[in-house]
Each structure stands twice: as C-alpha cells, then as structure tokens.
Simulated scan of single mutants.
Amino acid sequence: MANFTIADIKALREQLGTGMVDTKKALEEADGDREKAVEILRLKGAKGNAKRADRSTSEGLVVAREGEGKVTLVELACETDFVAKNDKFITLADKVADAAAAVAADSVEAALAAPAGGQTVEQLISDEAAVIGEKIVLRRVRTVSGDAFEVYLHKTSKDLPPQIGVVVAYTGDDAATARSIAQHISFANPSYLAREDVPEAEVAKEREIVTEISRNEGKPEAALPKIVEGRVNAFFKQVALLEQDYAKDNKLSVAQVAKDAGITVTDFARFKVGA
C-alpha cells in the first residue's frame, strides 16, 4: 500500500493546483515520495503542453512594473478568459513581470531567459501552464526608459484583469496631462511617437498607394502632388502619436496638448491582449 495520507494529497494539490485524481495517482506511482510525485505531475503536464502547442491564445492580461528610470510592460496570453482571471494565472503574470523588470527585458527572448526563483521565466511558464492546463505564451515585453512615467492599465471587461496597457515616458511636471495622453494612446493606438519615426519605406509605400487611389478617382494630374501630400499627412495623423487629434479635444493635436502642459513625451508603449 502506498505510503501517503489524505493530508499528503491535500498538501500536494495546494502546492501544484492539480486535480484530486491526478495527485492521488502520482503519489501512488511515487510510493508516497512527494518530490517524485511532483516530477510525475510536471512531466504529465509538460506532455499536455506539447499537445496544446497549436492552440490559439487570444485571452490574457497586461501588467506593468515600475522601476528606477524605467517601466516594463508585459503581455501574458492564455486560451480562455476563465484562465485570464484565475488567481494562479495572475500570480504567474506578476512573477513574469518582476523577473522581466529585474533585467530590464526589452524582448520576449530576454524575458524568457531571465531568472525567476531558481529557474528561468520560460521554465516557470511551462511549469505553470502544465498545472493550469492551458497553453500560456509570453507574447510581448517592452521596457521604456525616461525621466517620468504614467502607466495606464485599462479593463475592457470589469470581470477580467487589464487587457490594454500603456506606458508614457515624459519630461515635465504635469502628471495629469501625461496620464490623459496615456489614456488617449489606449484608445487611438498610434504606432510611432512622431512622423520622423515612421520608416521611410512605410511612408513611400503609403505615398504610392494614395497616388494610385487619387489617379483612379480621376483627380487632375497637376493637382496630384498636393492631394497626395494631404493624404500622406492624414496617414501620419493615424500612426504618429504627436500628429494625432487629441481624443478629448479633436481641435488640438497631442503635440499641442503636451506643449501647452509644459511636458515632452519622449517614448511610449501600448499592448492590447490578442492584438
């Protein structure tokens, strides 16, 4: 007869979050050896991870960690909203964010390699995914550096953790305006800070597209340069934060709002789960 008690089953379940039947079977197979039972359960979970490899991960959360002169933004993805609001998943996200921030990770690869309690973040996620029973993916990581920051985390549903996260780095003293700009970013989803940051190849492609559209609309050839530049400027207002119409007052640009408040936005990051 296996050398373990109901108390042992309960303790192991609380440690790993595994089901009663699986925990009991693992202890039976390990003849009551807790460490061996943990290995058995994790191996079983790892095999489950492999089976789940092709599943989609459209749910999850965004979490931020502020440090001295930097903020790290992390998107951790899972399969269902049920898991996204699960305490184990939220705790995992916190651990991942702590580890990523500790090394100022600016890529998924750097974050996955970061130490996290005697293992790497990659191993931590794999182990926890085995216990939780869903595919879990560290989708995006970004560390923003600057003098001052505003972090805005937005819940798209009151029942779920934040699914949109924004970090704004700025200079100046008007934190309220910086936060308002962070809220604007969450809504407007700019890709770049300023028009100068938009890659030349992307601008050239847009100019080519709007030129063709304008010609197809039968616009006079002589008027094309002015029409095209107007449409390219409209493109900048879509993708560059400082060019955008301010969400709270579309008569002003974000650049003008920042200038009036005496602040300069130096960088930003925005993550939305699944986007």
Rank of each mutant, 00 (worst) to 15 (best):
F235D: 08
R179K: 04
K95H: 09
V141Q: 09
Q183M: 04
S180P: 04
P220E: 11
V168R: 09
D81A: 09
I164H: 10
A269F: 07
M1D: 14
A116K: 10
L41M: 04
V21K: 15
P225R: 03
K88P: 03
T156D: 12
N189W: 01
V273Y: 12
K24N: 06
R13I: 06
G133E: 05
G172F: 15
E79P: 05
I40M: 06
R42P: 01
D87S: 10
D147V: 14
A175T: 11
A201G: 00
Q123M: 12
I136Q: 09
K219G: 07
D98Y: 02
V166Y: 03
A169T: 10
T171F: 14
A176P: 02
N86C: 05
A275W: 08
V210W: 14
Q15G: 09
V62S: 11
T72A: 11
A104T: 06
F187P: 00
P162W: 13
S214R: 04
D159H: 08
A240S: 05
R195I: 05
A247K: 03
T171V: 15
S145C: 07
Y246H: 08
T80Y: 11
V198D: 01
V137S: 07
I209Q: 13
D127M: 15
F271R: 03
K88V: 03
G67D: 01
D249L: 10
D249S: 09
R215S: 03
D54I: 01
L27K: 10
I40P: 06
A53R: 05
D87F: 04
A101F: 06
V273I: 11
A255F: 02
D127T: 13
D173T: 15
Q238V: 01
F235P: 09
I164N: 10
G274L: 09
V131Y: 13
E109A: 11
